[in-house]
Amino acid sequence: MADRERSSTRPGGRVFVARTQVMDRDEVRRALVRIAHEIVERNRGLRDVVVIGIQKGGVPLAERLVAILREIEGTAVPFGTMDVAFYRDDIGMRPVLPEEVTDLPFDLTGRTVVLFDDVLFTGRTVRAALESLAERGRASAVQLAVMIDRGHRELPIRPDFVGKNLPTRRDELVEVAEDAVTIGDLIGAGKDMGTR
């Protein structure tokens, strides 16, 4: 999800300035609970379901989703994390660096994978994640859950579970935190695209 990369590789001189809060803590929680129920309903239970959070923004949300699934179904769903930096198609065009660990402690073959990311934007992160998944086994199905779908897709990718559809301008930035979703702008004309 491009927003996440933009926010995480924020050039030195620039800062994210929040303009509007679009979801509060309760709304984020309710959206997660609803998505959890939708996942159970769609898959008629949680048999063979695994949840994978996309680094970095998708991971804490995916962890919460797993906890909610355990509450409502009594099932401990296997959980993994994935960093897709090395699978991106824009390497060399912009700063691309791995953010966090990939940890998939299970075989994907025959599983139903629920990929979770915080914001769905161009779809390029999800494309990269699908390529990485394909190298690790043949999942029987891959489903996509996102907290925010902000539009502006550049690839034919559609989410299965959405916390909130949020119309945005292309140059806006959406930030998903544990207790709020905010929309804002990247301010400042920093030149340093370095990662430090």
């Binding site: 930096a85 660990v101 940890d103 190298e135 690790r136």
Partner: peptide
């Protein structure tokens, strides 16, 4: 130190069944 951090990510790649990524 940056190379060290980056190496951690590739060390994980090296442990995979297919120890190869399309990065370059």
């Amino acid at each position: 130190l940056e190379i060290m951090r980056l190496s951690d990510a590739f060390a994980e790649v090296a442990e995979r069944p297919i120890p190869k990524v399309p990065a370059l």
